[in-house]
Amino acid sequence: MNTRNTGRRGTGTAVTMTLGIAALASLAATYAVGLSLPRTYEQGDYSKLIAIHPGIAWASYVAFGVTALASALWLWPRTRSLAWDLLAGASAEVGVLFTALTLITGSIWGRPTWGAWWVWDARLTLSALELMLLLGYLALRRVPADSEVRARRSALAALLAVLVVPVNHYAVQWWRTLHQGGSLSLTPKDALDGKFIFAMVLGFLAMTLVYAWLTVHRFRVAQLEEDLVDDDLDAALEARRREAVTA
């Protein structure tokens, strides 16, 4: 992977345009299907949130996973490239967005159904921890350092932080939580109606595509920023050389 974006034409290409259209179309479909879901006996209108909340949470897991995978690829000597470090950073930043939205939409769903905006339940607490870990990871990336030093310590931090994702995923099975179990793994007796499963799966697709589109653009922004730093460094070195010649 080359970090240089020689074209310098912003962050859009035909591929990202296609990805963007697919993301927008699937998001629009998710909203249309989700908002037209019928009221349920247990939750009334609030069950319509099933179209967005699980998909957003899934996208936050994907973001964490991509950050960890890109970090591992940077650490592996054969695949080491600055691009993997930039991708890890881009994915983590988008991950903050989706993790924060997971907490927000979860609280909005919890208030009318549980009677509380927040409870220190294992799933909610671990989701909040994920957000803190991602913010900490991004803060670590901003500590001034050589790009290789930054990449190494960020990669190690990401690989440690990602361990919370499987724990969070299985939290609803390992501990007694207020949060419900996995919607797609309920026993047939408790299985969701087909319309709700369809809306939820559509939400998974839409949020994954939105995540991908945002991450590709954020990655390219990071490449352009890196090129600017290189250009500034080259200009500064050139200025010093000229000073040395004229002195």
Binding site: R8, G10, Y31, D45, L49, V94
Partner: peptide, 30 residues
Amino acid sequence: MTYVWAGYGITLAVLAAYAGWVVHRGRSLK
């Protein structure tokens, strides 16, 4: 429906705001 609209609305607003910032940032670095 207030909570439902809030959930859908905040999600759309946050995603749109970030997408707008990323695209703007990319263009400003041309």
